[in-house]
Amino acid sequence: MSVVTIILITLALLILAGLSFYAGKLLMQVKQQQQQAEQQKQKIKTDRDNRLIESIQTISHAMESEQCEISEGALRLAVLFDHLSNAQQINYPKKYPAIHALNDKIKHFAILEERKKLEKKERMRQDFQRLQAEAEYKELVLAEAIELKGFNLNS
């Protein structure tokens, strides 16, 4: 082998080593970026869950101190449970059956602008049905609300 061939082979190996090093460095950067993105995603999820938990606890306190109607609290709590990150793993309707049963009975009633558009007779009928359902579930829902004052994802 000639000296030129050896120099060319050595040069090619050095270029290959340099490119391999650069490719490895880029792969490590991509991995770090993916880890950072995953950590950010987890932080967002945790922050969101913490806000939901705080809302659950606040509504529970309000229900217990009668600052929030039982039916309104049940509607709000059922929605909040659905938005928790662990809602797929934990069966909240089974864990808090009274809240979800009351929610199921009244969730189809008109609210806000939709309620204003109802005739007075229909509005009174819905109010009567809501009050009946509220009376039926009041004690059970309040017991669950008291339990929820200390709610966290592990409880």
Rank of each mutant, 00 (worst) to 15 (best):
I106P: 06
L27V: 03
Q39I: 12
K41H: 08
V141H: 00
E136V: 07
K105E: 12
L14E: 06
E114A: 04
E66A: 05
K120H: 15
G18V: 03
Q34M: 09
L112F: 13
E136Y: 07
T58V: 11
A74L: 06
A135H: 05
D47F: 10
A78D: 12
Q88F: 15
I9T: 01
K117G: 06
E134Y: 11
Y22N: 01
K116C: 01
R115A: 03
L14S: 10
A87S: 12
E113I: 11
S20T: 14
L84G: 02
Y96W: 09
R123P: 01
R76Q: 06
A37G: 11
Q89G: 11
L52W: 04
K45P: 11
E122A: 15
Q39R: 13
V4Y: 06
K120A: 14
Q132D: 04
L142H: 00
Q89Y: 13
I7W: 00
M124K: 14
Q33H: 08
R130I: 08
A98L: 03
L16K: 13
A12V: 01
K45F: 11
E122D: 14
F81P: 00
K45A: 14
I111A: 04
L140K: 12
I99S: 02
Q88P: 15
R123F: 04
K41I: 04
K121V: 15
K105Y: 07
Q29H: 09
P97W: 02
C68P: 03
D47C: 10
S85W: 03
I106C: 07
Q33C: 05
F109L: 02
K116S: 01
K25L: 05
K95I: 05
I15R: 05
E64V: 15
D82F: 13
N50R: 14
L13G: 06
K117P: 05
L77K: 05
F81S: 00
T5K: 07
E38I: 09
A62W: 09
E113N: 11
E113K: 11
R125P: 14
R125Y: 14
L11T: 03
